[in-house]
Amino acid sequence: MEVRTIKVFTTVDNINLHTQVVDMSMTYGQQFGPTYLDGADVTKIKPHNSHEGKTFYVLPNDDTLRVEAFEYYHTTDPSFLGRYMSALNHTKKWKYPQVNGLTSIKWADNNCYLATALLTLQQIELKFNPPALQDAYYRARAGEAANFCALILAYCNKTVGELGDVRETMSYLFQHANLDSCKRVLNVVCKTCGQQQTTLKGVEAVMYMGTLSYEQFKKGVQIPCTCGKQATKYLVQQESPFVMMSAPPAQYELKHGTFTCASEYTGNYQCGHYKHITSKETLYCIDGALLTKSSEYKGPITDVFYKENSYTTTIK
Results as ranks from 00 to 15, higher is better:
residue 120 T to K: 03
residue 295 S to W: 10
residue 217 F to V: 14
residue 207 M to C: 09
residue 313 T to G: 10
residue 156 C to P: 06
residue 149 C to I: 09
residue 167 R to P: 02
residue 249 P to H: 04
residue 188 V to D: 06
residue 121 L to K: 04
residue 305 F to S: 03
residue 192 T to K: 13
residue 97 P to D: 09
residue 200 L to M: 09
residue 236 V to M: 12
residue 152 I to D: 03
residue 47 P to S: 06
residue 238 Q to V: 00
residue 262 A to L: 00
residue 277 I to R: 00
residue 280 K to Q: 15
residue 12 V to R: 08
residue 95 K to I: 12
residue 149 C to M: 12
residue 4 R to Q: 15
residue 77 D to C: 13
residue 126 L to R: 04
residue 296 E to C: 13
residue 179 L to Y: 00
residue 76 T to H: 09
residue 302 T to A: 13
residue 149 C to G: 02
residue 131 P to Q: 06
residue 265 Y to K: 00
residue 300 P to S: 11
residue 6 I to V: 14
residue 303 D to L: 05
residue 120 T to W: 05
residue 294 S to M: 12
residue 155 Y to H: 03
residue 45 I to Q: 14
residue 138 Y to H: 13
residue 47 P to E: 04
residue 38 D to C: 10
residue 239 E to H: 12
residue 231 A to H: 03
residue 285 C to N: 09
residue 180 D to P: 01
residue 78 P to K: 11
residue 170 M to Q: 01
residue 306 Y to C: 00
residue 120 T to I: 13
residue 236 V to H: 07
residue 314 T to K: 15
residue 54 K to I: 12
residue 110 N to F: 03
residue 187 N to K: 13
residue 144 E to A: 11
residue 212 L to A: 04
residue 41 D to R: 07
residue 216 Q to A: 11
residue 151 L to G: 04
residue 264 E to P: 01
residue 6 I to L: 14
residue 274 Y to A: 04
residue 90 H to N: 08
residue 128 F to H: 04
residue 97 P to E: 12
residue 56 F to H: 04
residue 248 P to G: 04
residue 245 M to A: 03
residue 185 V to N: 02
residue 298 K to V: 14
residue 65 L to H: 07
residue 154 A to M: 04
residue 72 Y to G: 07
residue 174 F to A: 03
residue 22 V to Q: 05
residue 157 N to G: 09
residue 303 D to N: 04
residue 278 T to R: 07
residue 51 H to D: 14
residue 259 F to K: 05
residue 308 E to Q: 09
residue 60 P to I: 07
residue 314 T to W: 14
residue 165 D to K: 05
residue 30 Q to E: 14
residue 141 R to L: 10
residue 138 Y to D: 15
residue 161 G to E: 03
residue 126 L to T: 05
residue 136 A to Y: 09
residue 307 K to A: 11
residue 198 T to R: 13
residue 163 L to Y: 14
residue 75 T to C: 09
residue 176 H to V: 08
residue 308 E to Y: 00
residue 285 C to V: 13
residue 57 Y to T: 12
residue 6 I to D: 04
residue 300 P to F: 15
residue 239 E to L: 10
residue 40 A to V: 13
residue 242 F to K: 01
residue 205 A to P: 03
residue 288 G to R: 01
residue 252 Y to G: 03
residue 193 C to W: 01
residue 253 E to D: 09
residue 310 S to R: 14
residue 66 R to H: 09
residue 116 T to F: 02
residue 130 P to Q: 03
